[in-house]
């Protein structure tokens, strides 16, 4: 038996909206630890890792480890019928091929349930090594969204360079070049507005802006985003999910031909 109840159901809606552009079908892996998902986009350029810890749920029952295979476009259609303030319950029998979504309005005057057919998806797990990154930047997620959007008007790729001066986002296109420099800015009364740059080594990597823009669909999950970079690793763009876990996007850099 698998049954979990999430009071802040909007988190689930936001997570699915943030990843469904990159991944069509995915397994949600359920264990006593919580719900997790790991999936690559079809071209194996980006990897998504989601964790929702069991203690973030009001009720969490998972009798044995199960993988629930689902089509994310269908999950999105179903979650769109839930109100933003609804409490969401997910349940599945051990050997069933259906996942039941139950949506309860906050004052319990509307309760709906929808059964969704599950899919058998061959899951491929990648080992993500723990790494000490050369540069870690924490900045307002809205600011990162704006930078990615603005640079997309000029070019297709972004060079992210971290030096002791700050972090520079640069692009080149047919109409010209653009640079945006963000410096460390610790706003003590508003920590969410801070930009904090921790650098062990200067690092500069090039990425496809199309993917970065896709990652920023997670902006509403968290007021800040953490970007971790090392010269020999994919970049990590992490949105924390309030007291429950995280949604991380890994993106392979562009390399010199």
């Amino acid at each position: 038996m698998f049954e979990v109840r999430l009071v802040q159901g909007s988190l689930l809606k936001k997570v699915v909206e943030a990843i469904r552009e990159l991944v069509t079908d995915a397994n949600i892996d359920c264990s006593s630890t919580g719900l997790s998902l790991q999936a690559m986009d079809s071209s194996h350029v980006a990897l998504i890792a989601l964790l929702l810890r069991s203690d973030g749920f009001e009720h969490f029952r998972c009798d044995r480890n199960v993988s629930i295979g689902m089509n994310l476009a269908n999950v999105s259609k179903i979650l769109r019928t839930a109100g933003n303030d609804d409490i969401i319950t997910l349940k599945a029998d051990d050997d069933g091929d259906l996942l039941t979504f139950m949506f309860e309005s906050p004052n319990q005057d509307r309760i709906s349930d929808i059964e969704m057919k599950l899919m058998d998806i061959k899951s491929e797990h990648l080992g993500i090594p723990d790494a000490e990154y050369e540069a870690v930047i924490k900045m307002p997620s809205q600011e990162f969204l704006r930078i990615c959007k603005d640079l997309s008007n000029i070019g297709d790729t972004v060079v992210i360079s971290v030096t002791k001066e700050g972090v520079k986002f640069s692009t080149r296109g047919d109409i010209g070049n653009a640079n945006i420099v963000c410096r460390q800015n610790t706003t003590l009364d508003k920590p969410d507005d801070s930009t904090i740059i921790q650098m062990k080594e200067p690092v500069s990597l090039t990425f496809a802006l199309r993917y970065m823009n896709s990652f920023t669909k997670a902006t509403s999950l968290s007021s800040s985003v953490t970007i971790s970079m090392s010269s020999d690793l994919p970049i990590v763009v992490e949105y924390k999910i309030a007291d429950m876990g995280y949604l991380r996007f890994y993106l392979a850099p562009k390399i010199e031909d």
Partner: peptide, 14 residues
């Protein structure tokens, strides 16, 4: 132009 890297060249299947 730079070539797009692949996640599988950084992280291995387990």
């Amino acid at each position: 132009d730079n070539k797009q890297g692949n996640i599988l060249s950084f992280f291995k299947k387990v």
